[in-house]
Design a protein around this nucleic acid. Structure first.
Lengths: 335, 335
DNA sequence: CTGTTAGCGCCTTCAT
DNA sequence: ATGAAGGCGCTAACAG
């Protein structure tokens, strides 16, 4: 599999490299006869265009970089990451893009590392997740006028392109669902409040209670849960209340699964002794016991919108536009 | 942040581009005076070399591609993936490499897609995981003489470079640990047997029983567990035996955590009513309740060896060499 | 419709 | 120690 070039093809067919290029790129202005010959020889030689040469000449790398935060703490999206990254990578392929993983240590306050892939011309744009309520990275990229998109919103006082899922609405729906099932004492298991989505989801819980005329009971709320130790402490506290919740709204499938496990150790079975809802609808959620009622994030669509919009920003098509996708309540056995 | 080139620097300093290149790359043959000037101007202009141009001219992309299998089934390494990918990406940075995520649908029998990144000159080498006992991808890459490395071994009858963790030894140690704790009836929760590591780990369990003169009880063994439904069915079967196991060896932390959850629903508490061990030592494992006794995979070292060896293969340094790293038993509360 | 020329940004001979 | 020139593989611009 020696490396072939268009020059070899040109020589064999007896045309110029330019013609080969045109034929290969479906550019009009090549006789269908030569076009056929060229394509045929290319296939025969097992020719594949060199992406690097194309990038250099086209001033575009056709590569997007996912900014991955690296830290040594256990994180809350462990379950979600694989599905997200693989979906993202597949969407990239659909747009003729490659996906680079760009690790950034989150203790690197310099904020400099984040643009390495852009500065070195390795990528055309950045994808960010785990957005904070006031995310300095977003401010920085906006200041620098660099092409990026986020999965999640943040309050920076300036417009920018993002894709988000309506977590407020999703959790609202989940909470209402529990209320309709007759629950009146409903606990909330929340993510670290520094994240935008944690705030959103909590807001949905609050609104649902309020809309149903139920009181917001501070004792029923546990925030900032990142690992099973947190989840255990929180659940044990909730379950030990004089009048504990009969239902729980968890801000992620991972938290829900952890909570179920803790409750089980105390003799409480989800879906029988109490109800619980998750958020994400990971493939796993349908296979837990009991199967988890949850809010489905339209992951494929999220990734597709992310890539489509970022590509738009890079190519200069269309303005900075954002979108908020609607999640869907999936009712299973846990409620 | 307009794009700077060495030509601009050359102009400002009043030297040729060649000299700038030499200065920037620490190539000898530049007066220390000019070198200083050049570096200073480069910093001033916020110059960063264009990686694409370097790649084109150097015939090396300095990019490695991780072959990510895409499928719609829930997978067994959900927990592991994030830590692995971020560690891998960080190691790449240490070697001046970038990491590309190269999604491949596993139903694409053609085996063609797998080399896309290589053929298009986007990457210099491939990284594979989830190795099967007889992995067609490895055969294929070997046939094509393409640069790759695997995390995990396979039987293809030819030597190739891999990094692996001694899962057999790890599970052996875990099983012995349980035996020393006085357990005589020990269950095994295994991964899908198509994977090399599933076989290895099972072998460790078998050897440990044998070494202690304990019988291998087929009823105590559950293989091919991929999700919580599987885990539930398996655990319920095991727990319902007339004389159920008093301890369980799980082939992954994820399986262990699922098993604990299922057992809890039946009123059995890990670390009190029965013992259980995992495999991976994810950050999560220290934060489960009870904290999980497990086998630690030296993840950082695995990634470092993977990258180091793959880079070696690409640059032609050193021969095809492989390494098997030793895992470590971490005793916590679950045993 | 087709070929020639030029150049993307960089590095590496080969001269000087 | 430095500069000029050529080329990595490809495509866009301009001729013909």
């Amino acid at each position: 599999m020696a490396k072939r070039t268009i020059i070899e093809i040109a020589d064999r067919v007896g045309v110029s490299p330019a013609t080969v290029s045109r034929a290969l790129n479906n550019v009009p202005g090549v006789s269908s006869d030569k076009r056929r010959q060229i394509l045929s020889v290319a296939a025969e030689l097992n020719y594949h265009p060199n992406a690097i040469a194309r990038s250099l000449q086209g001033q575009r790398t056709n590569t997007l970089a996912y900014v991955a935060e690296v830290n040594d703490r256990p994180t809350t999206d462990l379950f979600f990451f694989k599905d997200f990254i693989t979906a993202l990578a597949e969407c990239c392929v659909n747009y003729g893009m490659d996906l680079l993983i760009h690790p950034v240590r989150d203790d690197d306050g310099s904020m400099n590392d984040i643009t390495r892939a852009l500065r070195s011309g390795r990528a055309d744009g950045l994808i960010l997740t785990d957005i904070r309520r006031d995310d300095p990275r977003v401010r920085f990229l906006l200041d620098q006028q660099l092409p990026f998109i986020t999965f999640g919103r943040t309050e920076v006082g300036r417009p920018f392109a993002y894709v988000d899922v309506d977590g407020e609405g999703g959790i609202y729906a989940a909470t209402r669902h529990l209320i309709e099932r007759g629950h009146r004492r409903i606990g909330f298991l929340g993510l670290p409040m520094e994240y935008s989505c944690a705030m959103d989801r909590y807001a949905g819980y609050v609104r649902a209670l309020s809309a149903s005329g139920l009181p917001l009971t501070p004792d029923f709320v546990a925030q900032n849960l990142t690992n099973q130790t947190d989840a255990r402490v929180a659940m044990e506290r909730l379950l030990a209340l004089p009048a504990p919740p009969t239902a729980f709204v968890a801000a992620s499938d991972m938290l829900a699964i952890m909570a179920i496990s803790v409750a089980a150790q105390h003799g409480f079975t989800a879906g029988r002794d109490y109800a619980i809802t998750g958020f994400d609808d990971l493939p796993l959620a349908a296979h837990t016991s009991p199967a988890l009622t949850t809010i489905r994030q339209p992951l494929q669509q999220v990734c597709d919108e992310l890539i489509a919009r970022l590509v738009g920003i890079i190519t200069g098509d269309g303005a900075t536009s954002s979108i908020v996708l609607q999640p869907e309540l999936i009712v299973r056995e846990s409620t």
